[in-house]
Design a protein around this nucleic acid. Structure first.
Lengths: 148, 148
DNA sequence: ATTAAATTTGTAATCACTACAAAATTTTCT
DNA sequence: AGAAAATTTTGTAGTGATTACAAATTTAAT
C-alpha cells in the first residue's frame, strides 16, 4: 500500500467518499505520482498548465476535503507551508531545514506507535497522529562538508 | 524535570546560552508557570500589563531565540498558531480541534521513540522530533454527549 | 564618559490561507 | 429533453500570524 502507483484515482476517491471531478482527479493523481510532499502552491503551479482554468482556491478546497475524508495527509512538518502526502500509510516525516525537502521514514516506528494502546488511552479521541522531525538531510550535510 | 516550578529562570537561560534580560526572563517565567502551550500573542497580551513597553516583535524574537537555543519547544500541533512549551522533556502533544487546547501526554512513548536507534539511523541529523496528535479532548467529548 | 555592541521597539510588509458570492457544471425531477 | 436544484469551481478581496527593517534604547567595553 506504500506505493499507490497502480491505484486508480477515481476508485480511490469514491472509496473515500469523494465524488470525482476533473480537478480532484488531477490533484489526487499529482499526489500519487509526486512523492515530494508538495505545497498547495506547487500543486497549483504544476497543474495550471494542463487545466488552464484551475483556481488556487480549488486546490486549497480540494486538499482540505481530501484530508478530511482521509484520502491524503496534511502534514505540519514545515511550519511555513502545509505539505500534502498521497500516501496515508503510517509513517513519519523528516523536514530538512536547509533545502526544505520532506522525506518519508519510520514506517516501522509509526506502525508501532499507532498500535500502542497508551496513545489513545488518555481519554482523547485521536483523529490524526504525526511524528514530525526536523534537521539536516544527508545530502545537505554532505554538501556542507564538501564546501569546507 | 517535568515540572520546572523550582527552576530559576535566570540560571536556566544562562545554562542555555541566553543572556538574561527583563523581557526574556518574563517570557521564560511565563512559560514555566503556564503549562497551557500559549501562542506568542497570548504571552504578549499577558505580559503587556506588567511590562508596558513590551513589543510583540520582542516576544516573537525571544521565543525564536529560546527555541533555537533549546530552552523551549516551538510546537507545530496547531496549524493556525505556533504554540510554545517551557517543558523540554520528551513528550507528545494533543491538540483539541474543538476547544483549541493543547495537552501533554505520551511521556513514556516519546522517551521510547527517542531511544530507538532507527529514528536517527537513516542518515538525517535530527534536531527536533515531535509527536503531534489531533482530535477531540475528553472534556469536549463529554460536553458534546451532554448536549444531545 | 565615549564608543561599540547588543537588545528592544514600532511600523510596514509578506504571504499562506480563507471567506464569500458569482459563474459554471453536474444532477435531479417532471 | 428541458427546467430547477444541488454541487463544484472560480476570482477577488480579505485575514491574521509572522517577519523585515531601521530607529531608539539599553548594556557592556575601553
Amino acid at each position: 500500500m506504500r506505493n499507490n502507483v497502480d491505484v486508480n484515482a477515481e476508485d480511490y476517491l469514491i472509496s473515500h467518499g469523494v465524488k470525482p471531478s476533473v480537478q480532484r482527479l488531477a490533484i489526487m493523481n499529482y499526489l500519487f505520482s509526486h512523492k515530494t510532499h508538495p505545497t498547495a502552491d506547487e500543486i497549483y503551479m504544476s497543474l495550471h498548465s494542463e487545466i488552464v482554468t484551475l483556481s488556487k482556491t480549488t486546490v486549497y478546497n480540494t486538499l482540505k476535503l481530501l484530508a478530511e475524508k482521509g484520502a491524503i495527509l496534511a502534514l505540519g512538518v514545515d511550519d511555513k507551508n502545509m505539505r500534502f502526502d498521497g500516501d496515508i500509510s503510517a509513517h513519519a516525516h523528516f523536514f530538512c531545514t536547509k533545502c526544505g525537502r520532506v522525506y518519508d521514514f519510520g514506517f516501522e516506528i509509526m506502525a508501532k506507535i499507532n498500535s500502542l494502546a497508551s496513545v489513545s488511552a488518555e481519554g482523547y479521541r485521536i483523529d490524526d497522529s504525526q511524528l514530525n522531525c526536523k534537521g539536516i538531510c544527508s545530502e545537505c550535510a554532505r554538501l556542507e562538508a564538501e564546501s569546507e
